[in-house]
Nucleic acid binder design. Structure first.
Lengths: 191, 191, 191, 191
DNA sequence: GATGAATGAGTGTTCATTCAT
DNA sequence: TATGAATGAACACTCATTCAT
C-alpha cells in the first residue's frame, strides 16, 4: 500500500473514531508512519484530506446504491435489498459510512458545507427510492396503506440508527439483518 | 436567569451544534455574555462543564424514563408510551438529548468515560424495558413471535435514529410520531 | 491568633518554601483558612504582603543584631556571639531568615527593590561588624594578620551558606554551631 | 550558534536571574530571538527545558569534580584544589552553577524532584571528598583534630555561600580565592 | 517524494485583583 | 470584618501550516 493510501486510511479511521476536530495532523502522521508535511504534499490541508475521504466514501456509497436498480415487481424485495446493502456497506467501509451518517448539526445546517451536500444526497436517494417502493407497493396492494412521507422518514431513521449502532460495534447481537428485514416486512406487507 | 444558568444553556447549545472540540471556551463566553474565567469559577474546565451538561441531561432523561412505570396489561401501550416520551424529551431538551445520543466511538469505547457510562445506562434501560414488553406481549399472544434480542436492538436503533433526525431538525415532516407508532404496531401486534 | 496573623505566618511559610512566584494568593488563603479578598483587606496585594513579611523579618533580624553591642576587649568573643546569634535567629524565624538570604539575582540587582535594600542592610551590618572585629583583633595581636575585606566576605559567605543549609533542614548534623565557631577560631586567633 | 543553543543559553540566563516561575516562555523566546513554539519543538515544555539546563549543568559540574582525582599525600592541597575548582566553575558557567545551588526548599524536599537529586549528588560528592581529606589529614598529623561531619558541613556551607555570593556578582572583592584558601588552611593545618 | 525546523494564530487555563453586599 | 461572584491580563502550550532543502 502506498504511503498516500496508508495516510488516507489512517485518517479515515481516526476521523471516524474521534471526530474531525479531535484528530490532529501530527496524530494522523504518526499513526500512518509518515511525517506531517507529507500530508500537505498530497492534500491542501486537513480539511481537504477530510473532504477527500468523505467524497470517496460518498461515491462508494452511492455507486453501491445504484446497483439496486429500478427494479422488480415485488416492492418489499427492493426494500429488503436496500437494507441488506446497508449492512454490507457498513461491514465493508465502516469508517466512511460512519462519517457520512454522523456529521454535526452545524455542518449539516450550513448549505455550503460538503457534509451537508453529502448527507442531503444520501437522504434524497433514500427518500426517492423508498417513496417509490411504498407508492408502488401500496398501489399494487402488496403493502398496507400508510402515510408515505412520514413512513419513508421512519425507515430512514431506522437505517441511520442501524448504521451508527453497527459502526460503534457496541451491541454485537446476531441476527440483526434478518430481524430488521422481518420487522419491516411485518409492518409493511399484507399477509 | 443567573449567569451560571446562561453559561450552561449556551454551552449545551454550542456543544450540541458543533461538537465538544469545535466549541471554544471563548465562544461559549461570548455567546453567554460572560467572561471566560467565569467558566472556570463555576466549573473545573471545559470538560467538566461538558460532563455537567451531560450528566444533567442524562438525569433528566432517566427520570422521565422512570415515569413509564412497570405498567399495564397491554404491552404495545407501553411501547407506544416509550416512543411518545422520546418525542417529548427531544422537544423539551433537544441539545442534551442529542449529546447523549451522539458521543463519538472513541469515547463510547473508553469504559472510563462518562459518555460511555451514560450511553450504556440509556441502552440498558431501553433494552430491559423493551425486552420485558416483547416477552410479555409474546407470551400473552398480543405480539407475533419474534427473536427478542435482535428485535429489541432494531427498536433501539429506530429510537436513536429518530432522536438524531429530530435534533437535526432537518426533515420536519409532520406526523412522524404517529407514523412511528403505527409502523411498530403493525410490525409487532397480531391483528 | 488573629486571622491576620495566621495569614502572615502562612504566607511566610509558603513564600519561603516555594518562592514568591510559585505561591498563589488562593493557596495562601486556603492554607490560612481564610478567603482571598481578606488578603486585600489587610494588604494592598500579594507583593505588599510579601514585603510586609520581609520588612518584619528584616526588622527582627536587625534588632537582634543590635543586641550584640559594640563590645568587649576580646574580638573573637564578638565573632562567636555573631555566629551564635545567627544560629538562634534561624531557629526562631527560619522562614523570614531564609527569605532575607535567598532573594534572586534580578531583585538584588534592582536598586529600587526592597529585597535589595534589605540584603544590602544585612550585608552592610555584617561587613562593618566583622571589619571592626578583624581590625581591632589584628591590632591587639589577638588575630593573625589577614587581608580584611576578603576575609570579611569569606565570613559572610560562610554565615549565609549556613543560613541556607539550616533553613533547608537537609543536613541535620549535630554540633554545627560549635564546629563553626571552632573553625573560625582556629583560622583567626593566634594560639 | 544554532537556534536551539541560543534558546538554552538564554533560558539558563533568565532562569538564573529571575527564577523558574518569574521567567515566562514568551520572554525566553523574545530574548533568544526565536518564536515561542520553537521551545516546544525542542523541549516538551518549560519544565523540561529547565531540567535539561539543570542536568547539563550538573553533568558539567560533576565531570569537573571528577578531575580532582583521589590524589596526593598532602590533604590540604586537595582541599585547595576543590576550592580553586569551584571558583573556576562559577566563572565558567555562573548560571548553571547558581541554579544548582539555589533550588527552593519545596523542590529540595521533594525526593522525586530533579533539583533534589542534583543537589543531593553535589552534596554527596563534596561530603565524601571532604570527609576523606579530613580523615587522612588528621591521621597523618597534617590537620588538627576536628569533629569530621560537622566540619565537613561547615566547609560545604562555605563553598555554597561563596557560589551564591559570586554568582550574584554583588561583592566583587578581589583576592577572595586566596583569602578563602588561607582561611581554611589556618583553620585546618597545624603550623 | 520526503523531511527537520520553524511559525502565526489560537487554545484552555490561571492569576492577582476588584466589586457588590 | 468578611465573602461569593466576577474579570483583565497574562500564561504555558498546541495547532495546522509553511519553508528550505
Amino acid at each position: 500500500m502506498s504511503k498516500k493510501d496508508t495516510l488516507v486510511k489512517t485518517a479515515a479511521r481516526l476521523f471516524a473514531a474521534q471526530g474531525f476536530d479531535a484528530t490532529t495532523t501530527i496524530q494522523i502522521a504518526r499513526e500512518a508512519r509518515i511525517t506531517e508535511p507529507l500530508i500537505y504534499y498530497h492534500f491542501k490541508g486537513k480539511e481537504d484530506l477530510f473532504l477527500h475521504i468523505l467524497e470517496k466514501g460518498s461515491d462508494g456509497y452511492l455507486s453501491r446504491m445504484k446497483t439496486l436498480g429500478e427494479g422488480g415487481p415485488v416492492q418489499f424485495k427492493r426494500i429488503e435489498k436496500l437494507i441488506t446493502l446497508h449492512f454490507d456497506i457498513v461491514r465493508d467501509m465502516p469508517d466512511e459510512t460512519y462519517l457520512i451518517a454522523s456529521a454535526c448539526p452545524a455542518r449539516l445546517r450550513d448549505e455550503g458545507d460538503v457534509c451537508a451536500r453529502i448527507a442531503e444526497t444520501q437522504r434524497k436517494f433514500l427518500t426517492s427510492y423508498l417513496r417509490d417502493c411504498l407508492k408502488k407497493g401500496m398501489a399494487s396492494g402488496e403493502f398496507w396503506k400508510v402515510p408515505v412521507e412520514p413512513t419513508v422518514n421512519v425507515l430512514i431513521a431506522l437505517i441511520n440508527g442501524l448504521i451508527r449502532q453497527r459502526c460503534l460495534r457496541l451491541e454485537q447481537v446476531r441476527g440483526m439483518k434478518k430481524a430488521t428485514i422481518e420487522f419491516c416486512r411485518r409492518s409493511l406487507c399484507k399477509p
